[in-house]
Design a protein around this nucleic acid. Structure first.
Lengths: 202, 202
DNA sequence: AATATAATTTTGACCGGTCAGAATAAAATA
DNA sequence: TATTTTATTCTGACCGGTCAAAATTATATT
């Protein structure tokens, strides 16, 4: 049945994810994916058109999962500062998961420059991230807890700082720094959004 | 003489840079590098141990050039706010150069997770970036124009926001947004460093 | 200066190895 | 039995690295 096929596909995507995180995007072979999924080589070709098709779905799957996780996190909170904290904490997750995720994500970002499909998928991911940012900021401004910053600009800034911090953290092989970067990120964003001097000058 | 050999090596590095920016890290072959450098395939092997050696030197060459450029830019200015502006403007450079550079740099970052040499080189680059940040912040605090933020934290934040902004910009194929992201980045950093509420709580 | 010799640099064909994709067959399942 | 899944093998393309020979440049000799 369809459900079972869907299970297989996810099994393969998980395997591909693991393979990419350990071996790196380009050194992953169809055989690797099959090995990690504990199936034979032909299965991947049966469920996906080719290797690129696997990766395309993998990027979609991963970014979708991240977005849903982050969105769920902020939905549990009710004030803007709480949502902001929840967002940053969700984005940073825990060191080992996040290291794995960002390794893979970074490879896709690098590839996106030469692959329009990846770029499109990432655009949708960005849109989702920005929408989270906007939601938080709008609430904060309605509450009166946040300054009257330009909402779009600020939503870009939020994601830029999160990604920039995580990449910087990723490049140091030191999980200790995870909470440091997370808290610094949150603190900076809190001050940025709260500071009444940051008024929208438009 | 030695000088001529050095010329050749740089010629090859430039070719490799061009090749990576156009074709992507992993699809670049020794033949590609030779083609871009307008020499035969064997030359690269004559001047470098192997392909990886070329890439290692390429990353060093590129990051060194970037750092020197940024450092030169802030050295021309005398006040902290001016240095900050100069730094951000240097980091953003111009759209086409920066797109090329960040494409290549992003590929190296992705690779760094599986390549210790790349990671080491990037660590040195980060150190240089942070030192620029620290220099600016220290001056600003001495001048009294900047708030008493934690200098290390702030230097990480500065680079994180620059990198995060540039990557986000890179993923949109729109050079128009270049000044938008640059100015937003600078504005955010200015406010962050100037805001007297951002006091170091240690 | 002209020629011969040596050193350096460049070339491109070649080899061993790898991989994606295709083809095929065998086994399992319903 | 028909369909799905797994296992195995083949093939053609491609790449990194090698290296002998060619070309060029530098040096020595007369």
């Amino acid at each position: 049945m369809n459900n079972k096929a869907e299970k297989r596909r996810e099994q393969i995507l998980r395997a591909a994810f693991q393979a990419v995180s350990e071996k790196g995007f380009h050194s992953v072979t169809l055989q690797d994916i099959a090995d990690y999924a504990d199936v034979s080589k032909g299965v991947t070709s049966y469920y996906f058109q080719n290797k690129e098709d696997v990766f395309r779905h993998l990027l979609e799957w991963v970014t979708e999962k991240i977005y849903k996780n982050e969105h769920a996190a902020i939905s549990k909170e009710h004030t803007a500062p709480d949502k902001l904290r929840a967002y940053v904490h969700a984005a940073f997750a825990n060191p080992s998961d996040n290291r794995k995720f960002y390794r893979v994500y970074l490879e896709f970002l690098a590839q996106a420059n030469h692959n329009e499909q990846f770029r499109d998928t990432n655009d949708r991911f960005y849109e989702n991230c920005w929408s989270i940012g906007r939601e938080i900021i709008q609430l904060g401004q309605k509450e009166g807890t946040f300054a009257n910053v330009d909402i779009d600009k600020a939503s870009y800034t939020i994601r830029a700082l999160i990604d920039g911090s995580l990449i910087q953290w990723l490049m140091q092989n030191n999980d200790q720094l995870h909470t440091f970067y997370r808290d610094n990120c949150l603190e900076t964003l809190s001050n940025y959004l709260t500071n009444k001097n940051n008024q929208n000058s438009n």
